[in-house]
Design a protein around this nucleic acid. Structure first.
Lengths: 182, 182
DNA sequence: CACTGTATGATTACGCTGTAAACATCATGG
DNA sequence: CCATGATGTTTACAGCGTAATCATACAGTG
């Protein structure tokens, strides 16, 4: 009665986790295994423990986020592009809140939250604005956007205040592009 | 064999939770009750469920945070004061990371993360800088500081990069004080 | 082809958790 | 003096993460 079907259990587990997150449920190894039609211990053949699985899910999330940022990066003007990236970041957090929170929940072994090229997508644009104090400018920009997303999820922001958010983002890039030296 | 001693179980439970958080352990109702020398079900006489207890803990955290911000608010110049507040906010998050994360973890029934006067402490200073676009400026400032704190906890920032952080904070207030209209 | 090692999954079991239900004990006010 | 409500205890149950052990199927080698 061994199944041994269908492609790659790990992928199906991660997919099931993403689905559960989208559904607003809280993910658990057992429920996850049940959804995948497999025994409770099966996931342990592919992930050291629950955190390892969640780290894999988070990585998928970071990849998606990077794609969203890239898609929003079209404008030639760096200021416009950065604001658009910020809005995309916010939209991602609001569209998939549980996943977003998981991504930044600090599961020990996982990758740093600033992952892969999602970071690079932004840094390239910031460099056009503030090449001398790049580090500080990048930190300011990313912090502001990430903080706004977090506050939005936790109820501090009204979900329809997009014009205020837009104005705030413009202030940030203004402050950044005004920097001459550290 | 009924204890019925000592002042107010709820306070002692919250205190035990804070202690456990400070110790880096993860809080649980049972362990909490054990630390307090009381039975596992006792907390339910004072809190509807675990989330309610955590919400109380979070409120205590917000009060502490507000005090830190007030203490950092001394400088007469609003720009300096805001930067100092940001640094205090960061210091709080780094000094008590588990509590900070709990405060913004979005336990349903709790208060909004921007709590009490902690918010007001900052808003008053922002108003001196950008009275016309207050909403956006406040959002920009709070978002940046909160995002920096979150990123710091999740390993994205080096713990000794305080000069970069300082520069980033200055950029933020520069962008805010440059705002003339929305 | 038979044989064996390795990868994958299933079973079982343990201690932990949050919490529902029923019971005991006290302080208090009619 | 006794009923009543507030507080804490005991017992019980379902769910969780995971350690240990067993079963199966496939791959490579003789």
């Amino acid at each position: 009665m061994t199944a041994k079907i269908s492609p790659e259990l790990p992928e199906r587990l991660v997919a099931a986790a993403l689905a559960a997150l989208e559904r607003g449920e809280d993910v658990g190894l057992r429920a996850l295994a049940r959804d995948t039609g497999v025994s409770a211990m099966a996931p342990y053949r592919h992930f050291r423990d629950k955190d390892a699985l969640l780290a894999a899910v988070a990585m998928r999330g970071f990849a998606d986020l990077r794609d969203q940022l890239l898609a929003a990066n079209a404008a030639p003007d760096p200021r416009e592009a950065l604001v658009a990236q910020g809005q995309a970041y916010l939209a991602f957090a609001r569209a998939r809140p549980a996943l977003f929170r998981l991504m930044f929940a600090g599961h020990d072994g996982g990758p740093p939250p600033i992952e892969d090229n999602a970071y690079g997508v932004m840094v390239r644009r910031v460099r056009e604005l503030a090449p001398v104090s790049l580090e500080a400018a990048t930190l300011a920009c990313w912090s502001a956007v990430h903080g706004m997303a977090t506050l939005a999820l936790d109820g501090g922001l009204s979900p329809d205040g997009s014009s205020v958010e837009h104005a705030a983002l413009k202030m940030i890039v203004a402050g950044i592009s005004a920097a001459k030296r550290s």
